[in-house]
Nucleic acid binder design. Structure first.
Lengths: 116, 116
DNA sequence: TTGTATGCATAAGAATATTATGTATATTTG
DNA sequence: CAAATATACATAATATTCTTATGCATACAA
């Protein structure tokens, strides 16, 4: 597990990306999926996930559907039209941000000194 | 400029990385350096930077030295021994985190469906 | 029957940022 | 030369977004 603070700000983008690649998903499934893809390196906590889902829904990016499975109810989320657009934007923004971060993380002493 | 929330959690690592590649730097210089390296894409705000620097100093990762320049005082920061170790760790952790994030961001519908 | 897994949700608290403000000197520009 | 911008530090109020803890409930395995 990584220092949790790194995850800050990326959670919504992760949710939107997963939903953009699948028809619909429910909360618990998202946590398991992320755990699986990242080989256990990222574990979403419920206290972070559910408020984030609710916020995305409130913002009109997700719609929900409750489906009974046995005696339990699952709440499925799917992207709205607006959510689909936002998903693409957020993912693109995250990619660019990571490239920019790399430019700092991979800087050499020479390049840094160049203009100090 | 990126959505600010992405920067959350990466600020300390950025500071430690810059200091690990230079002898010493002062706060304002760090903001300018980051702006230059990222071509204006990341602008550190003072309200975030100074508290972060103070925290790193309080944690024993940075030491300070005040130097008069003209009639003004600059507060230079440099890594302590402990800060140097932490810098390496944090940078490594950030790199690994970015790799992990990529595995989510670049996932294809097929791979995702594989185990839904 | 007791723990683990599944499934949702919220509340208290911590961490970390934004925005605004304050103080002060130096330099550039109209 | 006055005013704006740049340099340089700092903190307070507020917002956001997590963690941790708690609660409820069903299903299944040891």
């Amino acid at each position: 597990m990584y220092s949790k603070e790194l995850l800050k700000g990326t959670l919504k983008t992760i949710i939107l990306k997963l939903l953009s690649e699948s028809d619909q998903m429910y909360g618990y499934q998202i946590t398991q999926k992320v755990k699986e893809i990242t080989e256990g390196k990222i574990n979403l906590t419920e206290g972070a996930l559910y408020p984030a889902l609710h916020k995305l829904e409130a913002d009109g990016l997700l719609s929900t559907e409750k489906i009974e499975v046995g005696n339990r109810v699952r709440k499925y989320y799917r992207l709205t039209q607006s959510g689909n657009n936002t998903a693409q934007e957020k993912v693109e923004e995250l990619k660019e941000f990571m490239e920019t971060l790399k430019s700092i993380i991979n800087i050499s002493p020479q390049k840094l000194a160049w203009s100090i």
